[in-house]
Design a protein around this nucleic acid. Structure first.
Length: 861
DNA sequence: ATAGGGTTAG
């Protein structure tokens, strides 16, 4: 009994009431509904028919002689208006009927309420309800009207009224049950929906294919797979498993519960499928992280010739975004355009998400500007897009625009922003964000709390992080891991271990990430054996190490001086079937550097080429670094030359290599070269180039570089930059110039700078300055015994032997162990030596030997 | 009956 969806003039149509049939109907009891087919759906009423009814109505009104005929004509016209969605006109007509004192029957209220349901006209419906109550009698206690009222309130999303009325109805039918269960589903009261389903069956009513989809939706939302399977069995027994609606709901339910095998089984067994069925499978795969599968099904769907909808494209875009699949996502966008899909908030948001995940932020911006309607999700996605490419300022600007649109931030906005503040170490903004969360009750969201804790941890405020962590009463795995990682990063392995135990006491089982952080904490604290122990423990407890675990171990071993073991671990990782990525390869190259083993480095290079792992620029950059630091600058240059599209990091690595090998001319030539290639140098470039100059004592070139950096590249020099120039100037004997520079720089001179000045003073015989500098240096690093020696030497040089004795005394008092046997200094041809106490001290003996070799005379005091 | 966004480890 399908009713034609379209109603062109060429289509034969059931005749509407003719005047004759109207008269015939007039003799029937007035409860008769003119044409049962017409009550199916409001869209079914064609305009033509409506006009017909209008003419009939006027004609009848003129001719109507009897009360009943008039009533009937009103009724059918009103019913027609209701189904047209013109509820207000219908009500007006009703009022007119009352004025004419026409006797109305309960069905007329039912008809009006149905009209209100179509239009979701809550206010009008309430007025009708009020009239029903006012009328009382059979109108107020009429099961037909009561059921209609239940459905009306249910469809208008007023659960209180709907449930109260529903409880009063003695004879509950499938329709009212369906309405109430549906309402509970829409409101998110899934358990109530399922309880209703049970109660309905207990009352002996058979659920139909209108109720079942809602029940399955509730099962899916609650992830109650047991009940879901039960309903599946029930559906089969009822014989409605062939219904597309029911079967699609089953697919969706299994997908939501994560049982994709069963979802697929239902899907494969379906005799008839529609778009929703296909969409449900695709969505199921995407929501369970099986993005490749989702894309595969999408292509199968295309093959089957099914026209995609918004849902299809949205899901395809999600899968593409998760995989970073550029082609597929762009295909999705093209498809949306070709199919003429309107750019609604969902589709637009999916597009923005896709484009920002693959790094095409301009395309994301374009989609955003084309969208007519935007909601919080849309705005959040644009903000997140900017954060992902590191444009935090732009993200903040979008926040401002969002506020101008009178939209307020939600927990997603804040979590995104906090992660940006964590990445950029912006404590100030982070604090502002935290305050916003407190004011707007966003601290009740665990995700937000995690992002706040992480922000404080990354901004080196571990106490604040811990405080926020402690004040949160919901602690999920991610929050625990955030706190654990914070302690691990600092090398506070004891605290990390405490977190690790405590989370288990609070019934949160650790995952790979927890183990990885624990291992990192030990490695950062130099506890290599403990780290290795944890690596075995996790495996014996059934947690498989992943790429990050192996990489953590490899880099940690390399940094702790266990280069050989790091290389072995790298091999074992591959034996375990894990393919190395950029980070792990860089880690193992670091091992070669720390071992200064050119042999291992070469072998590794060969291995990378044989296994096609030598693909990315970061790896090539590390290779350059490795060859240079292992002593082979020529090989470093060869690797460098082989890189096709050179970017800044590669140049920086090569310049640093030249600097390391004292090849300042080559370093400066490369600096000129990168500028000619249109590459913009950064502060690292200048650090390396300045080191090269200072090493080669190229004063003019060094000063020119410094000038270039400040004037043409707008780079604020760091203390390291100043240090290079100060070193350069002082070593060339231009101490005055060096001190002038120190006077203008916005930093306090650090130990390294003072040390290099001290050395220059020594070289150039500036004894007074040496004394001053060693004093300053000692203030900076009171625990460094080398500084005491420098100071003692300075006093010795000045012949102030009393002061030397005092320094020795001071050292002893402070418990500094490495006390050398003597201080000595050569002034002109004269050598001054101070021997402290033990003359057989190894240091003293060393000096005797040296002096003897130099053929110098010694004067003692 | 089906769709879009955020937090943790190398």
């Amino acid at each position: 009994m399908p009713f034609p969806a379209s109603c062109g003039n060429d289509q034969p149509y059931p005749p509407f009431v003719s005047s004759a049939s109207c008269l015939a109907m007039a003799s029937l009891p007035y409860t008769t509904i003119p044409n049962p087919q017409l009550s199916l759906s409001k869209q079914s009423i064609p305009i033509e028919l409506h006009k017909q009814s209008q003419t009939h109505f006027t004609k009848l009104q003129e001719n109507a002689k009897t009360h009943q005929i008039l009533y009937q004509s009103y009724f059918s016209h009103m019913s027609s208006l209701c189904k047209q969605g013109q509820i207000q006109q219908a009500v007006d007509l009703f009022v007119e009927m009352e004025h004419k004192n026409l006797q109305v029957c309960p069905e007329i209220y039912g008809e009006l309420l149905q009209g209100c349901v179509y239009e979701r006209a809550l206010h009008t419906g309430k007025q009708i309800h009020a009239r029903i109550i006012k009328k009382g009698g059979i109108f107020a206690i009429n099961e037909y009207i009561e059921t209609k009222l239940v459905i009306f309130y249910a469809k208008c999303d007023v659960p209180e009224a709907s449930n109260r009325l529903f409880r009063r109805v003695r004879l509950k039918n499938v329709f009212s049950w369906a309405a109430v269960i549906g309402l509970n589903c829409r409101m998110g009261f899934y358990q109530e929906a399922l309880l209703g389903f049970r109660e309905m069956q207990e009352n002996g009513l058979l659920p139909d294919n209108f109720v079942v989809p809602n029940v399955l939706k509730a099962c899916g939302a609650l992830e109650w797979i047991g009940i879901g399977k039960g309903v599946h069995g029930y559906v089969v027994k009822l014989g409605c498993s062939g219904c597309v609606f029911v079967a699609s709901s089953l697919v969706d339910m299994y997908g939501k519960c994560g049982v994709l095998e069963d979802a697929r089984k239902v899907f494969d067994g379906m005799p008839e499928r529609n778009v929703v069925t296909w969409n449900s499978v695709i969505v199921g795969y995407v929501q369970n992280g099986l993005n490749e599968e989702a894309i595969k099904v999408f292509y199968e769907m295309k093959e089957a010739g099914v026209e995609p909808t918004h849902v299809t494209v949205s899901s395809l875009l999600s899968a593409s975004a998760n995989l970073g699949a550029l082609q597929e996502g762009k295909h999705g966008h093209a498809l949306a355009v070709v199919c003429g899909l309107e750019l609604n908030t969902n589709l637009g948001s999916s597009l923005i998400n896709f484009y920002s995940k693959v790094g095409l932020i301009e395309d994301a911006e374009m989609v955003f500007s084309k969208m007519l309607e935007k909601d919080v999700v849309t705005w959040n996605l644009l903000i997140s897009g900017y954060v992902q490419v590191g444009e935090v300022d732009k993200a903040l600007n979008v926040c401002r625009l969002m506020r101008l649109e009178n939209l307020s931030f939600d927990s997603v906005t804040l979590a995104t922003l906090m992660s940006a503040f964590a990445d950029t170490r912006s404590l100030k903004f982070g604090k502002v964000g935290h305050c916003y969360c407190i004011r707007n009750n966003l601290e009740s969201d665990v995700v937000v709390v995690s992002s706040i804790v992480d922000m404080y941890a990354k901004c080196e405020k571990i106490d604040c992080a811990k405080q926020v962590f402690n004040s949160s009463f919901i602690r999920d795995l991610v929050l625990w891991n955030t706190m654990l990682a914070a302690f691990a990063e600092l090398g506070h392995s004891g605290e990390a271990l405490k977190m690790f135990y405590q989370m288990q006491l609070e019934s949160v089982p650790p995952n790979v990430i927890s183990w990885n952080s624990l291992i990192l904490g030990f490695l950062k604290n130099g506890q290599v054996n403990e780290a290795k122990d944890m690596f075995w423990q996790m495996q014996s407890l059934g947690v498989q190490p992943n790429l990050v675990t192996w990489t953590t171990l490899i880099s940690g071993l390399a940094k702790s001086g266990f280069g050989y073991e790091a290389i072995l671990t790298f091999q074992r990782m591959q034996e375990a079937g894990i393919k190395p990525n950029v980070v792990s390869i860089i880690g193992v190259l670091l091992a070669c550097i720390n071992m200064a083993s050119l042999q291992n480095g070469r072998a590794l290079h060969g291995h990378l080429i044989r296994h096609s792992l030598y693909t990315s620029i970061p790896i090539a950059t590390s290779l350059v670094d490795m060859y240079a630091k292992c002593g082979n600058i020529d090989q470093a240059k060869r690797v460098f030359d082989m890189i096709e599209h050179k970017e800044l990091p590669v140049y920086n690595a090569m310049i640093s290599s030249y600097a390391l090998h004292g090849q300042a001319v080559e370093a400066l030539a490369l600096y000129q070269g990168l500028k000619e290639e249109g590459v913009k140098p950064d502060y690292i470039t200048f650090t390396n180039a300045l080191y090269a100059c200072s090493h080669a004592m190229m004063v003019n070139e060094g000063l020119e570089l410094f000038f270039d950096m400040v004037s043409y590249h707008n780079i604020n020099p760091s203390i390291e930059h100043y240090g290079c120039v100060v070193n350069l100037l002082s070593r060339c004997g231009n101490l005055d110039e060096a001190f002038r520079l120190i006077g203008t720089m916005p930093y306090k001179p650090d130990a390294q700078m003072l040390g290099s000045l001290l050395a220059a003073c020594r070289e150039h015989n500036k004894i007074e300055l040496e004394e001053y500098l060693s004093n300053e240096l000692l203030k900076l690093q009171p625990d460094n015994s080398g500084n005491y020696i420098a100071m003692s030497n300075a006093y010795a040089a000045a012949g102030r032997w009393d002061e030397v004795t005092k320094v020795r005394q001071l050292m002893k008092e402070r418990g500094l162990r490495k006390i050398p046997g003597c201080s000595w200094i050569q002034i002109g041809e004269e050598l001054h030596v101070f021997i402290a106490g033990d003359i057989s001290h190894p240091e003293t003996e060393k000096i005797y030997m040296t002096l003897a070799l130099l053929g110098m005379e010694m004067s003692f005091r």
